[in-house]
Design a protein around this nucleic acid. Structure first.
Ligand SMILES: [Zn+2]
Ligand SMILES: [Zn+2]
Ligand SMILES: [Zn+2]
Ligand SMILES: [Zn+2]
Lengths: 136, 136
DNA sequence: ATCGCACACGTTATACCATTACACAATCAT
DNA sequence: ATGATTGTGTAATGGTATAACGTGTGCGAT
């Protein structure tokens, strides 16, 4: 199981429900927002959401946005899991976009390696202004 | 005042106390830990800490670690403020190191610019294993 | 069969992080 | 003086995340 590539088909009931909520959302959701959306499906406590999220993040289907305390479905869930990802977060309209750049991953690893540090997971979150908001 | 480069000499009493707590700490501190350390100096409420932290971060003297919900004194406070910084966070010993790399800043900006996004502030936090923990 | 184990699940309570709202004092420009 | 700005103190609240405990189910080893 641990060397298996998880897809939405492998998920448990709670994991599927949380994944569904994130997949149909237009942007990131907080754990408590997910909880509220799933009360009709029997969810009663934060832990039900957090446990599902832990697994979904572990499987690479969901990313956690540290600077927003929120979670978002991976934009590339259809393909194989990807190693490195970066997010842009528009401070004006709230839009969040996932950028994939393998070269960035290499660069970050080597930057850290200079001081003997081995990267296992990296968080890159860029805040600023999106194209639409800059134009408007 | 707004175009002034702030140093520890410009700070208000509360800002100085918070800055002092962070400066003498060996690593990042949470706002509530700072509060506890400053109770003897008259601090009574979280807001006193958060208000000071807001300013210190604005002045570039302190960085916020999003993935830890904690704050750390800038390693380069003696020099001019720097634009871009990255952190390594050892998951084994908790050690946090600030890495400066201006080239990284350029790369992140241009990566974002490809999709028309203008970066105002970037968060880069690398989690993994530090040299000492890998050796031991 | 049944024991032991791993894993998902449900519930309650608690801990931890951050902000809102209101009031007061000090400072500075006009 | 007056008003605007900024820093401060206090209380209350809101938002995020985990601890601790118990239940049930599936499955391999005995
Ligand atoms: Zn992704
Ligand atoms: Zn925007
Ligand atoms: Zn710094
Ligand atoms: Zn370490």
């Amino acid at each position: 199981m641990s060397d298996h590539v998880h897809t939405t088909a492998d998920l448990t009931k709670n994991q599927s429900l949380v994944m569904g909520a994130l997949a149909k959302a237009s942007g990131p959701l907080s754990a408590y927002t997910i909880l509220d959306e799933l009360r009709d499906h029997g969810f009663r406590a934060p832990l039900q959401v957090y446990r599902a999220l832990d697994k979904l993040v572990e499987y690479g289907l969901v990313h956690r946005l540290e600077s927003l305390n929120a979670f978002v479905a991976c934009s590339h869930a259809e393909c194989e899991g990807h190693g490195q990802t970066a997010f842009t977060i528009c401070q004006s309209c709230g839009d969040v976009t996932e950028l994939a750049d393998d070269d960035l991953a290499v660069r970050l690893k080597s930057l850290a390696a200079r001081s003997g540090f081995t990267v296992r997971h990296s968080t890159v979150e860029l805040r600023g202004t999106c194209r639409d908001c800059a134009a408007g």
